[in-house]
Amino acid sequence: MRDNVTEESNMQSEHTGNVEHPQEQAGGMTKAEISRRWLLMKIGIAFNGIVGLALAVPIVGYIVSPMKKDAKYKSWVSLGGIEKYPVGTTRLATYVNPWQSPTDGQTDDIACWVRRTGQQQFTVFAINCAHLGCPVRWFPQSKLFMCPCHGGVYYADGSVAAGPPERGLFKYKHQIVNGELKIFAGQMPTLSNTAKLVTTIGPCKGDSPCAG
């Protein structure tokens, strides 16, 4: 045991450059004492490591806390009675985002496009262009959605008509409860959470699968 300690302290003195200070050795310090110093240093480092970990775990937890599963952010939101949306029209609807914080201000007011094609037939499109998220506008005269940013154009059913989007407009899940139109919303629709990229960009006319 004693031998082991000596050997270890020898190694340490080599590693840490103690040999450069012969006066310390000459001052009567035994190898055992040096070893004790380094043991304390090691204990110090280990202690720091533990405290650091105790600090890091809550910090990391705090920073990554917004990274939740999509469903956790979403809930059913009412867009009002279905009578607000006459059959055969596409209208802008707004709702207050169900996920809020006290400093959101007006950013909680979210818009979407509601298209009603029959008594019970609705499609609710996100306002965000499927290319880079700018707000698309509906033109009832030409029955097209147009995006002001990069010229993405969509047909009335949300499928791509022209421009750079790789898929049709994002659609919200919706249901009609007691004459009210409800959508499943709460999160900004992006390519990663709503319907992924559509790989086949073929002819996107009508309600083809590539409309997303």
């Binding site: 939740k68 996920w99 809020q100 950013t107 900004m188 992006t190």
Partner: peptide, 15 residues
């Protein structure tokens, strides 16, 4: 998707 949440500090642009 998770990076978007981290970047925005939530599911949507807000406070």
């Amino acid at each position: 998707g998770q990076l978007v949440h981290l970047l925005l500090g939530g599911p949507i642009i807000g406070g």
